[in-house]
Amino acid sequence: MEEQKTIVRIKKLNKSFGDLHVLKDIDMKVLESDVVCLIGSSGSGKSTLLRCLNFLEKKDNGQIIIEGEEINPGTQDINKVREKIGMVFQHFQLFPHMTVLENIIEAPTHVRKIPKNQAVEEAKELLVKVGLEDKTDVYPSKLSGGQQQRVAIARALAMKPDILLFDEPTSALDPELVGEVLTTMKELAEDGMTMVVVTHEMGFAREVGDWIVFMHDGRIVESAPPEVFFSNPREERTKEFLKTTSLK
């Protein structure tokens, strides 16, 4: 099998908020078509790490290398970089003053600058993909949380990103709506989308993840393929964490 391309490489990444050192010497690698699940308790730094990847948080030092190129907000056009890195937020963040369709074509028409009719075509295909083709002209306030999150996924996909970041995509959802979003994400993974997912859904991480990264207190404590990580964790911290989450 030919070797997978490295999409993201992080070296010795550090980040502090004032006195609080939230990311400590993070080293990480995301390979093309892989699904990397970031897990760990709240405050362990996993969301901050994710946000550093598309520069919503500025790193203090270390390297972020995306598709072979080291990215620094001072020297590169961050907007261009972000076009290639999609992001899905915990609270969806759909644009409430726009319909579902307008939400999806907004960035393609104004950033990628493709013709509107082409953007609409692509948006409709994406809506079929996330199973919401009947919601084209509806405003987000009329959708359930799960539907909103699937629109948000379609919106991110409309920019044709090389990698998709998910920041606790199901944490704000009612329990019965979690499944539909996870299913959509699983289908994306099967299509070969490269994904980094911050999640508390252990079942999803085990089933869909290609690589599990466990963070605690700003450090990566353990990272391994899910078969190894869940059945045979090396670190004491990991064992404790898995024990508490399996109690649910």
């Binding site: 972000r82 992001m87 937020f89 644009f95 409430p96 003053h97 104004h110 950033v111």
Partner: peptide
Amino acid sequence: IDQGQMEAARSLGMPKSLALRRIILPQ
């Protein structure tokens, strides 16, 4: 306006001025 709106717009590659004009100011 929720700061997440600006972040969502920026994460789609929109420059700040465009995000202001298209996303923040209308709301």
